[in-house]
Each structure stands twice: as C-alpha cells, then as structure tokens.
C-alpha cells in the first residue's frame, strides 16, 4: 500500500458516499445516470468475485464489501425507492455498446484465461467507460447539480491517483500491470473536460453548466 493508492481509495469511497447521501438527503436521483450505476455495480461484482476465496488484507476485504454494498444500495435507491425521480428521458446511453466491446476485448487481451482473471479484465475495461452514460446525461441536460459535480470529481480523482500509484509501484516494486494502466489512463482522460469545467467553474462558486 502507498499513499497515492490510499488517497485514491479514499476519493473513491468519498465519491460513493457523496452520491448515496445526495440521493438519500434530497430523496431524488435527478441528474444521476442509473445506467452508469448499473455498470459500476457490474464492475465491482465481476472484480470482487475473489472476495470469498482470496484474502489479501482486512482493509482490502472491508473496502470490497463497502463498494459492493453501496453500489447495490445506490441501484436500489434509483430504481426502487426514488424511482419516480429517475430521469429516464435523459439517461438514454446504450450500455450494450459498452458491454459487448468490453467482453470481446477481455477475451482478446488478458493476462490469463481463467474465469477469475477474465472477469477481472472485463471489470477493468468496463470501469474505464462506466462513467460515459453519466457524462452523456450531463451533456444532454447541459448542467449538473453541484453535489453531483463533486461526486464526479472525486470519482475521476480516484483513478488519476491510481495512475500515480502505478508509477510509484513501477519504480519501487518494479510492479506494472499494463491492462490496468492503459484502461486507467483512458478512464482518467474521459474526465478531462469535466475536470476543466469543474476547476474553472464549480471551484469558483458558479453552477456547473456546460457551455451552450
């Protein structure tokens, strides 16, 4: 464990908690893409299948449980409890256009063809694009609630910090996982224009609005 990965995991946890609290407190999931949340739940489910038979550390197991539980709780809030506030008119990204390429790519480029490894590789590729429905929804509505922009910033920052963690591990442990690094860089790049808008607008107290 290193400080970059710890900060990354904390950002990730903050993002998930912020989203849960936003929906719970405002009793509304307006502006939130349920499709992205479905993809995230799928990412954690396929990545953490080893939760029950590979023990890495207490921290690792606890965080996996938290990520799994919170992602399904978020789905419950969106599609069951506050279903009436779900903005399905704007959450229209075709996630099959993400799922199918990820399945194909994980069969073409993977470290190993064991089921657990294939699921892990699929989850890495899927996580890289899981935010697209949410970013697409924000671009369609042209704006996002400030709390939603904080959620997106924390979520983007988590994988950016993981890139620093991989650089650190490369030089200190000569550890490198090309699949995770390439997918992580793509994932972070997808947030780039959002980061720019967030820093130039939200941090100056303005609303998060895309330039018309």
């Amino acid at each position: 464990m290193n400080i970059f990965r710890l900060l990354g995991d904390i950002c990730h946890l903050v993002a998930i908690i912020v989203l849960l609290l936003k929906i719970w407190k405002t009793r509304s999931c307006a502006g939130i893409s349920g499709k992205s949340q479905i993809l995230f739940a799928l990412v954690y489910t396929t990545r953490y299948v080893d939760l029950f038979f590979t023990y890495v550390s207490l921290y690792n197991s606890v965080m996996k449980v938290i990520f799994l539980a919170s992602s399904y709780a978020t789905l419950y809030l969106i599609y069951v409890k506050f279903k009436a506030t779900y903005d399905f008119n704007h959450d229209t990204f075709r996630i099959e256009f993400l799922l199918i390429p990820c399945v194909i790519l994980s069969l073409l480029i993977t470290h190993d063809y064991s089921p657990v490894e294939l699921l892990w590789t699929f989850s890495i590729y899927l996580e890289a694009v899981a935010i697209l429905p949410q970013l697409f929804m924000v671009s369609k509505t042209g704006e996002a609630e400030t709390i939603t922009s904080h959620y997106l910033f924390a979520l983007g920052a988590y994988r950016a910090l993981y890139i620093v963690n991989w650089i650190y591990r490369y030089y200190t442990e000569s550890f490198i996982d090309g699949i995770a690094v390439v997918a992580g860089i793509i994932q972070t790049i997808l947030y780039a224009d959002f980061f720019y808008l967030y820093i130039t607008k939200v941090l100056k107290g303005k609303d998060f609005k895309l330039p018309a």
């Binding site: 990965r5 990520f67 892990w120 996982d177």
Partner: peptide
C-alpha cells in the same frame, strides 16, 4: 503474457 500475480488493488 504476464505471469499471474495476486490482485492486491481494489
């Protein structure tokens, strides 16, 4: 392809 290694990252 690379040898397997323990996935210690989240």
């Amino acid at each position: 392809l690379k040898p397997k290694f323990i996935k210690d990252e989240l």
